[in-house]
Design a binder for these strands. Structure first.
Lengths: 203, 203
DNA sequence: GCGCTTAAGTAGTCACTGTCAACAATGTAT
DNA sequence: ATACATTGTTGACAGTGACTACTTAAGCGC
């Protein structure tokens, strides 16, 4: 980054710098196996410096995952149309935003869902993860109130939505949704099926 | 396993032994970060011996993943009822078998879908993976022929099924399908929605 | 200004990993 | 028997996460 001699001894804001560097690297390489030392190297700092800010490698991972969930949630909210005409008009854009987030940031997305087993941090992580579930929940709740969705425990339906988009995202990241096997727009097809299963029969 | 002195110099069938040992360890520990040396140790063999049978750690991983896909496919076939009365009767058991496989063998399942980027082996791996997709495809094809499913490109529907069960499996493994947020039987709820989206309107 | 505490860096070490090359024991073809 | 290919073993290498001890800079009351 800069010469070692004119760089101040104290980085100033290394915590943030470490996080940003890690995010950059996650963004750049689809499959990067995370190493603390490489992050430190690239941040222009000694290999042990990050330990002053994170007790653990897992702690940094958990933090990154939390940021990822916040981004995801924000991008879902942004994709939600203000004046939806139908249930599908509301669900489809959000689902597309979800999958797009995953395929645009594959390394980060994978990290978010495999950080597992971080004892303490795991709790907070799950909270953040369930926040994206809540986005779906809210859409469906409104849809049910408007009468366009069957009266049925809504949590299961939201779980269906989450499972579907999460699964499609993962499969897409892994390159398993090849068009010649799966059609040209599998997500749209899947969403059609899902929405039609959600809707009330009378239309 | 046995004393070093009475064990013959040549193992006899080390390739298989390595695979079996690795599978055992995957089965035992939900989160095991795979190390070749530990496998070798446990197989009672020196740390470099496996390299005579696998060019690479990735090669062993790919082989394990392929075995996993074969198992999964077999367990799906076994779950398929011989004389299904309805589409749901055929889809639901298979979906349950799918998720059960994943939650019963979390480490293996995760490995199967994150082995990514193994150049050559990746091709064969994807073939095996798509074989489970074919199971769904066949069920739906028969359903459509019998007239219980809408006439629509069937690949997209199969992708919907795969995405759904894969996503639910992953979320379940990661402990994200907590009942208090998501209801008691999220998979059943999700399947109901999916099946109803698949079915023809006339019933 | 001056000395003090302390946060934020450094270097060095440890046990561990994947991988490779050199060597040894075993089986097999000639 | 003798040469050879196979399949083990040992020992080394660089790179990793984690930890420690040391050093440096910054901020503080006085």
């Amino acid at each position: 980054m800069q010469d070692a001699h004119n760089r101040p001894y104290h980085h100033g804001d290394l915590r943030r710098a470490v996080i940003e560097t890690a995010l950059d690297m996650l963004r750049e390489e689809k499959n990067w196996q995370f190493t603390l030392r490489e992050v430190a190297r690239r941040a222009g700092v000694s290999h042990a410096a990050p330990y002053k800010h994170f007790p653990d490698k897992a702690a940094l991972l958990a933090e990154l995952a939390m940021i990822g969930f916040d981004w995801l949630r924000a991008s879902l909210s942004a994709a939600k149309p203000k004046a939806p005409k139908s249930l599908r008009d509301e669900i489809a854009p959000v689902a597309h935003a979800y999958v797009a987030f995953g395929t645009d940031n594959p390394a980060l997305y994978r990290l978010m869902f495999s950080a597992g087993e971080e004892k303490a941090a795991g709790m907070h992580l799950n909270e953040r993860a369930l926040a994206v579930f809540d986005v779906a929940l809210e859409i469906l709740r409104r849809g049910q109130a408007a009468g366009s969705i069957r009266k049925r425990p809504i949590e299961g339906q939201a779980a269906a939505w989450w499972g579907l988009v999460h699964g499609m995202t993962m499969l897409a990241i892994e390159g398993l949704l090849v068009p010649e096997k799966v059609g040209s727009a599998p997500l749209d097809a899947a969403l059609s099926t899902l929405v039609e299963g959600l809707e009330t029969l009378a239309t």
